[in-house]
Amino acid sequence: MSTPLLSAENLTKAYGSRLACAGVDLDVTEGEVLAIVGESGSGKSTLLSLLAGELAPDSGCVRYRMRDGRSRDLADLGPAELRRLMRTDWGFVRQDARQGLRMAVSAGGNVGERLMGMGERHYGRIRGQALDWLGRVEIEAGRVDDPPSQFSGGMRQRLQIARNLVTGPRLVLMDEPTSGLDVSVQARLLDLIRRLSAELGLAVIIVTHDLAVARLLSHRIAVMRAGRVIETGLTDRVLDDPEHAYTQLLVSSVLAA
């Protein structure tokens, strides 16, 4: 097997005496969707922050295969390099769109920002790409100049996706992207994420407490509890034939996953 795009080894992070993340190993590669599931407080959001380089682990490391093919420890990247990576080769779709978008800036400006950040200085091209991406996430072109503060929850999440994917990232992290949305809006968003991640061959790490979301989107799943990954494997195998007592509890607690 080739080197994974991103791999974490023995990631550990404690807040005081509480281990938010304990010895987590995982990896993900292009075209693969990995779901991290668990209830709130299980450490899945901490894990995502560690993977994104937003938090420094107490021990362990996150390695990423750069575009030149070399694998680098994120801790060895300077802040400038890390941030460039984040806004070009990575995407991060937040649970709260207000953290992932500029609410007072138009939809087009939100999508165009990463392009401008990469040095694009041609208004026409930026706008063209913004319109193209709004179309791909099913936002009408007529809304390009409206700020996301005027958008519905589902549209905001779709706009976040467009804003993240416009630079052609290889890895996208998603933190509960569908929570708080109506069921029908959720379905549309999930379908969009599924389609785009397959079309673009993205590596996706999605944190969710919703097993139905994990089943629909992910190839593999990691179940977290108290900071540890207690079970991992093929998504359908873990959900249909869960081995660990906690996973069985989790699966049996949902109406229909």
């Binding site: 093929l234 359908d236 195998r237 249909d240 034939d241 081995e243």
Partner: peptide, 9 residues
């Protein structure tokens, strides 16, 4: 069948 498909352990 499910074991052959990897769906069951």
């Amino acid at each position: 069948l499910k074991m052959a498909y990897g769906n069951y352990r």
